[in-house]
């Protein structure tokens, strides 16, 4: 170190020695080859704010061969001239800009004013709507359960087995065994909460509302208490359209309680997200993601 000081006479304070060197000394980029033909490049550099940043990139190199007319290739190498002389290769933003995308497909019998372009969003929505299957839980028809014409007379599927006996017990044989299903059809008045379709509905008040999208809902636990819904949305939106993010919060402190529910429009997106985000480090904790269990 003594030699170092002597070599740089401009320095007066020995305490300054070596330190800046340590800070600026950056390791050379490390390149490792992966089995699948990609390369991982780890670079350490200092960003605009003066902070050391480590960047890990995975790169796949592909060779694209293109044939070009030699005359065109020659002209491409011409130095620019006029006001463009000396400017770097590539389009300049002051003269060249990209316009918005135009969908142009020739069609027979084209008529002007006809809507040829549809916003991609709308197309996606229409597609989603096509995909979304509405299925009645009572009669399996293609309508909502609440709109089912049999909703007062039949129990939802799956509960059908338990309900009749239950009902019979409660009714105490008030109506005949045969007329057990006929809440509104015949016999004496049966209050709505005792009718078959409504069996046990009181207990499910809270859960019933979300039951329909249970299939595509993820339960996220081990969430940092400083997390916000927006953070979670950002994480999960990568895998598909998120319809709902619910982050349980403490009423008094306003901090997260540590679990959340995320609903997707599409179950396959949810499955993918579940697989990918489970074990993802967020804040100082590792997220645990699983499919939400049916609310009971």
């Amino acid at each position: 170190m003594a030699a170092n000081v002597q070599n740089t006479p401009g320095r007066t304070d020995w305490a300054e020695d070596d330190e800046p060197d340590l800070a600026t000394a950056l390791p050379p980029p490390q390149i490792t080859k992966n089995k699948d033909g990609t390369e991982t490049v780890v670079t350490v550099f200092i960003n605009e704010e003066g902070k050391r940043v480590k960047r890990t990139q995975r790169i796949r190199r592909t060779v694209v061969k293109k044939k070009e007319n030699p005359r065109v290739a020659e002209r491409r190498a011409w130095p620019k001239m006029g006001p463009e002389a000396g400017k770097p290769v590539g389009p300049r933003p002051d003269t060249t800009t990209l316009g918005e995308n135009i969908i142009f497909r020739p069609q027979m019998g084209f008529k002007s004013g006809q809507v040829q372009e549809k916003a991609p969003d709308e197309e996606r929505k229409a597609e989603l709507q096509k995909k979304m299957q509405i299925k009645c839980r009572i009669c399996q028809g293609d309508h909502f359960t609440t709109k089912c014409p049999f909703k007062d007379t039949m129990a939802p599927e799956g509960e059908a087995a338990g309900a009749p006996s239950d009902l019979d017990d409660r009714m105490g044989g008030d109506t005949g065994g045969a007329g057990g299903g006929g809440g509104g059809v015949g016999g004496s008045y049966v209050p709505p909460h005792l009718r078959k379709g409504a069996a046990g509905s009181g207990e499910r008040m809270g859960g019933g509302k979300f039951e329909r999208d249970d299939l595509a809902t993820l339960r996220v636990t081990n969430v940092s208490e400083f997390a916000e819904e927006q953070d979670l949305r950002e994480i999960f939106e990568r895998w598909g359209r998120v319809t709902r993010v619910f982050l349980a919060k403490d009423r008094e402190t306003g901090r997260a309680k540590g679990f959340a529910f995320v609903s997707y429009a599409d179950r396959s997106d949810a499955a993918r997200a579940c697989e990918k985000v489970d074990g993802y480090g967020f804040g100082h904790l590792i997220l645990k993601v699983e499919f939400a269990k049916k609310a009971t």
Binding site: M81, G82, E84, R92, T96
Partner: peptide, 14 residues
């Protein structure tokens, strides 16, 4: 004068 491939301006004739 422009390159048609990327819209880069090659130059001007004044």
């Amino acid at each position: 004068a422009w390159y048609s491939a990327n819209g880069e301006r090659f130059g001007m004739y004044k």
